[in-house]
Computed example of a mutant assay.
Amino acid sequence: MRKREEERATDRRSQIVAAAFSVFGEKGFSATRVEDICRAAGIAKGTFYLYFRTREEIAEAIFEQVISRYRGRAERLAVSNTNRSCSPQKAAELLTAEVRSLASEARAGLRFVPVLFSILAERMTSGESELTGRLGGAFDGLASAWAKVLSAGNVSGASAGQLARTAVSMLDGVILHAALFSGPNTDLDVAVERLCAILASHIRGGVS
């Protein structure tokens, strides 16, 4: 019985977060009221406050989902490539496949990227650094995992770290640009393929 109640609570919390994400996308974070989120989720205002005290707490939950996803990917990739050796070609294939996979996930939620961007900007403006620090830590973890892939492909240590950090930053920029400025999703596809070509070329050129 207790487990079932916990599962229902988790489902309801996820329902509220999903509704909030949708409303943030339509109205913007600053213009969204708790009442708007409740209406979208089909719940009473009292139910909302059983799970969240403020709209900002939902923003926190949204970012935690993003951070958790990045950390999970980084951990799996790091574990699978620790103490591993492969050809530069294989390392290039592994890393470009990861880039394409992340871009594919981002494509499904491109319209929500500006929402995350606006929430992050507002929190930074208010002087809050903890959230941005955790997000930065997730990107650091991803870069570290990518560096392990590069090292496995015999890319020298310093070059592996630099290339991995640059690749993560470039992918982040490509996704942001597609979400904020581009129109068709094909723009993202083209940019990602160019990024993959650049990475593959540098991996082959950075072999120690």
Rank of each mutant, 00 (worst) to 15 (best):
A152C: 15
G141M: 03
L171A: 09
D189T: 13
S87F: 02
D36I: 04
G157N: 08
A20S: 15
R55E: 08
A19Y: 07
Q15W: 01
D140Y: 10
A138H: 01
T47S: 07
R84D: 03
Y51C: 01
R76D: 02
S104V: 10
V174M: 04
R12P: 02
L171T: 07
L50S: 06
I119S: 03
V155T: 10
T54G: 10
L120K: 11
G25M: 05
E57T: 04
I62P: 00
V174N: 08
R194E: 14
L176A: 15
E57C: 02
A179L: 01
G206Q: 02
Y49A: 06
S159T: 15
I37D: 14
E130A: 14
S118F: 00
E93A: 12
S129T: 15
A143T: 04
A59M: 07
Q162V: 14
K45A: 11
G137D: 07
S14C: 05
D172M: 15
A91M: 08
P88L: 04
A164L: 07
E35N: 10
L116D: 01
Q65V: 13
R111S: 14
S151V: 12
G42V: 05
L195F: 00
R2V: 13
L150F: 05
Q89V: 08
V23Y: 01
S201K: 14
L163T: 14
V23P: 01
G137V: 03
Q162F: 14
L120H: 14
R107A: 11
G25N: 05
A59Q: 06
G137I: 07
V113C: 00
R84I: 03
L199Y: 07
G127A: 03
M124R: 13
G157I: 10
